[in-house]
C-alpha cells in the first residue's frame, strides 16, 4: 500500500474517532453550558491551591511558590484531560454504549482510535488552559518571562509531553479492559498519580526519597519542570531535585522516558487485551 494511502486511512480513523469523541463529549448541552462546565472545574482546582497558600502563608506567600504551582496546574490540565479522556474510552464504549465488541472486531487501529477519542479532551484542555492563564495574568501575580528563542524548545517539549500522556492513556485503557467500572473514580485515580509524583502542586523534593525515584521515570515530571523554566524564563527552580540539571538534559530525559513508555504501552496493552479475551470480559458490563 502506498504511503499516501496509509496516511489517508490513518487520517480517516483519527478523524472519525475525534468526531465521535467530540460528539460524546459535547452534544449533551447548549454550547454555553458546556463551556461553563468545562472551565469551572479547572478554575476551582486552581482556587483550591491558591486558598491553601493563602491559609498557610497569608500575604507572605512568595511569587516563586505561586508560579510553581500555577504552571504545574496549567500543564496538568492537559495531563488530566487527555489522560482522562482516553482512559474513559473503554468504560464508555463497553458499559454505556455497548459498542466495544464491534470496535474490537473491526480492523481499526486501536492507537489511532484512542488518539482520535482523546482529541476532544485536548480541545477542552486547551480552552481551560487559556482561561486559567488569562485568570492568572489578569487577577493573580503571574509573570511570563518566555523568550522568543525558547519557543521552539517549549513547543517540542509540549508535543513530546502530550505524546507521553497519550501513551499513559493507553496503559490506563489496558487496565480498564480487565477491570470493572468503578463509578467515576477514574478521574480521581488519574489525578492522584500525577498530583503526588510529578511535582504538580508541590516540589518533588518534599516527597520521601523512594517516591522521588518514581518521579524520575515519569515523563510528566520533566515536562512540568521544562515548562516552568521556559515560561518563567529562568533556570532557577524551587524544586531541589532539579538543581544542577540543564534544560537540555531534562529534554533528553523527557524523550527517553517517552520512548520507554511507548514500548511499554504497546506490550502492556497487547497483554491486557489477550487477558480480557481469554477471560471473556471484552464486552462485560458492571452495573452494581
Amino acid at each position: 500500500m502506498a504511503v499516501k494511502d496509509i496516511y489517508r486511512r490513518f487520517a480517516a480513523i483519527v478523524k472519525s474517532a475525534a468526531w465521535l469523541g467530540w460528539q460524546l463529549e459535547s452534544n449533551w448541552a447548549d454550547p454555553w453550558i458546556f463551556a461553563v462546565i468545562t472551565i469551572i472545574r479547572p478554575l476551582a482546582s486552581l482556587f483550591i491551591i491558591i486558598f491553601m497558600f493563602r491559609f498557610a502563608l497569608g500575604p507572605s506567600a512568595s511569587a516563586d511558590f505561586f508560579n510553581f504551582f500555577f504552571i504545574g496546574n496549567v500543564i496538568y490540565l492537559y495531563v488530566y484531560n487527555v489522560l482522562f479522556g482516553i482512559s474513559q474510552v473503554i468504560f464508555e464504549d463497553r458499559e454505556h454504549y455497548e459498542v466495544i465488541k464491534y470496535i474490537y472486531i473491526s480492523p481499526v487501529n486501536w492507537y489511532l482510535y484512542f488518539i482520535g477519542r482523546g482529541f476532544a479532551r485536548f480541545i477542552v484542555a486547551s480552552v481551560s488552559c487559556a482561561v486559567t492563564i488569562a485568570a492568572g495574568a489578569l487577577f493573580l501575580p503571574l509573570k511570563f518571562g518566555m523568550s522568543a528563542a525558547s519557543v521552539p524548545t517549549f513547543a517540542l517539549s509540549f508535543a513530546v509531553g502530550l505524546v507521553s500522556i497519550f501513551f499513559m492513556g493507553i496503559i490506563m485503557c489496558a487496565l480498564t479492559l480487565v477491570m470493572a467500572r468503578h463509578g467515576n473514580m477514574m478521574s480521581e485515580s488519574v489525578s492522584g498519580i500525577f498530583f503526588i509524583s510529578c511535582g504538580v502542586i508541590f516540589p518533588i523534593s518534599a516527597l520521601p526519597e523512594w517516591l522521588q525515584k518514581i518521579s524520575a521515570v515519569i515523563p510528566v515530571s520533566y515536562w512540568l519542570e521544562i515548562s516552568r523554566r521556559l515560561i518563567l524564563g529562568t533556570d532557577k527552580t524551587i524544586d531541589g531535585v532539579w538543581h544542577g540539571i540543564s534544560t537540555g538534559a531534562l529534554m533528553a530525559r523527557l524523550g527517553i522516558s517517552t520512548v520507554v513508555l511507548f514500548i511499554f504501552s504497546i506490550l502492556f496493552f497487547n497483554y491486557m487485551s489477550m487477558l480480557a479475551r481469554s477471560k471473556g470480559i471484552i464486552d462485560r458490563t458492571t452495573s452494581y
Binding site: 480521581e188 485515580s189 492522584g192 498519580i193 498530583f195 503526588i196 502542586i201
Partner: peptide, 9 residues
C-alpha cells in the same frame, strides 16, 4: 488511587 491526591494536598 483516591488516597494519592489527599496525600498530595
Amino acid at each position: 488511587f483516591p488516597l494519592l491526591p489527599i496525600c498530595s494536598f
